[in-house]
Design a protein around this nucleic acid. Structure first.
Lengths: 349, 349
DNA sequence: TTGTAAGCGTTATCAG
DNA sequence: CTGATAACGCTTACAA
């Protein structure tokens, strides 16, 4: 019951393997009669070309590598969903790698991916990664590469991101508009492009409203669990106390919510909170969580589309560009209907 | 800058490819001197064996296929996380396929996976799948296969699941113990093993408490969005009205919570609610959600371990067995500290 | 219109 | 100890 090969068909039909190969590809040089014979027989035996042999032959492996820090994460699993959808439509397979936020593993994974002869890579940087020479090398070798979400702006490759600046700007602006002046920013590791963009958006809004930036109000966390409480504690100890929190990850948002609630602080009466997060059911939380969300699936789709485009017509290399997708700010307070606003600001920066 | 092959090394060192091959594998028949030469040169050129050539050669592809209904789902993304962790440790790669709950796509994906010559498959059935002959065929062909979560009990292969019966039994028992008698069960498509197990656990508890099973209290949903409200509406219209809901998926739990809250029904004062779900932050919901959770990551890990075991020593074929991991029931009400209990019941069934 | 043969990178078999 | 050679499944010049 081994898989049927072209050889089996050739033997059975008393033809050469090349004739069979050509017949299957509907080549013009084969007689209709022979074609019919081959096609039918192949159909009957449920012949499937061996993709490994095809890859070895050199053309393409029809596989994409996706390298992300963590699969078990709302943003990334949604993004992968988008990637897989596009890939499947175009006949590509998706090989998943996790870096677990480790630079070492990121490099190892990139190695593995190219060793597997994937046709291209979709990558979101680990939070440890500050040096991207491994990606420069990759790109120099001509390996199709698209970055998404956590990108490296200096790299001359296509990058797909959410409008992190705009989202942070919108969130901070909202807080300022509603009278907040001591806005704490709980964020993720500083190397990351998204961290910097969000911080920039936060600062831009402060500046616009004439509020001085206070670096004591900014705290960098990791992606580990249970760190929010400690950070919130530190921030609450300050004089004057923060009157708002703007957090940069699912975990930090939830952790902050928990920490504030635990201390009997009312949201948003005492302190406002907005999280940059794709957490589901934010409106069902207690209290409801205001969020800036990213179009995760669309980011994945777009990144996959660009990558496949790159793979399939390298000549027409559309110049590498950074594509920015709008984020959405949703303010949720008590049980009032949510206020929606597209965070698509582009103030001069 | 093309990848270095064994041939390149052979040419450069004036050796034959076979010598190089053996030297690299540290074969006993090669002189230490030659070995050193080859090793060093390979190291210097950063030689990596071509895994595609290796696969073609026939031994193993060091790749596992994971076929799940949906990646963007708490349970599955956590399970995949576990799978990837084990796979990575053992030197395997993970190729992800989504069926999107479609039988067609499940079959197509299985086909693709075997065509890719993966060393084994990890599969969780689509909700449309009632006929598993495609898997019987696979197994008959000797393809290593392990099912997890949504399994097919009749298939003579290893299966890894949570104790769905026990979880449902524990949840229902708790509801009964707290005086509920009209317990509605909002569940997922009926073909699924997990649906049946949960229903069985629900019925067993009812029976134990002498409460008659009422099929009008059971509703089957899909995995689509926005269906919970309609189902809840129907159930609430009954006389006497249900005094508790036990739901079987993330979406149904959240949808039910929303539907009840929307109608001003207090949980748990008016109606109790327990969800079979791995939703994060259940304790932060409003009202807090009582849950039965599955050890998703452990299920993934265990399934991957079993599969690799199967792949690597087929002779010692440990007989296929169904492994059941305990679920956890957590009752959350108001802001009282949660009550924990392992749902590890095995009442006679 | 069809067949022969080389080659993709590797390993295994068989001779030196 | 080392080297030729065939083979894995397929495509593609090049012959016929």
């Amino acid at each position: 019951m081994d898989p049927v090969t072209i050889k089996d068909i050739a033997r059975a039909l008393n033809l050469s393997t090349s004739t069979v190969s050509r017949a299957l590809r509907d080549s013009y040089e084969i007689s209709p009669e022979t074609k019919r014979l081959v096609m039918e027989y192949a159909e009957r035996l449920n012949y499937r070309p061996n993709p490994i042999a095809l890859s070895l032959k050199g053309s393409s492996s029809k596989a994409l590598a996706v390298i992300v820090p963590q699969i078990a994460n709302n943003f990334f699993s949604q993004a992968i969903n988008g990637i897989e959808a596009i890939a499947y439509n175009r006949g590509y397979h998706v090989i998943i790698f996790q870096t677990h936020e480790s630079y070492e593993r990121e490099m190892a994974n990139v190695q593995q991916a190219v060793a597997r002869r994937v046709d291209g890579l979709l990558l979101s940087l680990s939070s440890e990664t500050s040096d991207v020479t491994h990606l420069h090398a990759l790109h120099a070798q001509g390996v199709p590469l698209v970055l998404f979400d956590r990108v490296a702006p200096d790299l001359p490759v296509t990058q797909v991101v959410a409008d992190n600046f705009g989202g942070a700007y919108a969130a901070t602006s909202h807080l300022l508009q509603t009278g907040r002046r001591r806005i704490a920013h709980l964020t993720i590791p500083p190397y990351l492009s998204i961290t910097q963009e969000r911080l920039a958006g936060y600062r831009a809004a402060l500046e616009q409203y004439g509020v001085a930036f206070d670096e004591n109000l900014v705290r960098y966390g990791t992606f580990g669990p249970d760190e929010a409480d400690e950070l919130v504690e530190q921030l609450l100890a300050q004089e004057p106390r923060p009157d708002a929190f703007f957090t940069a990850s699912d975990r930090l948002a939830l952790g902050c919510l928990t920490a504030l609630r635990k201390r009997g602080i009312r949201i948003p009466e005492d302190i406002s909170l907005i999280g940059f997060t794709n957490l589901p059911a934010a409106e069902m939380l207690n209290p409801p969580l205001s969020t800036v969300t990213q179009p995760a699936q669309e980011i994945g789709q777009l990144a996959a589309e660009r990558l496949i485009e790159l793979i399939e017509r390298k000549q027409k290399a559309s110049p590498p560009a950074t594509v920015k997708l709008p984020t959405t700010l949703v303010i949720r307070e008590s049980s009032a209907p949510p206020v929606r606003a597209e965070a698509d600001f582009r103030i001069g920066l």
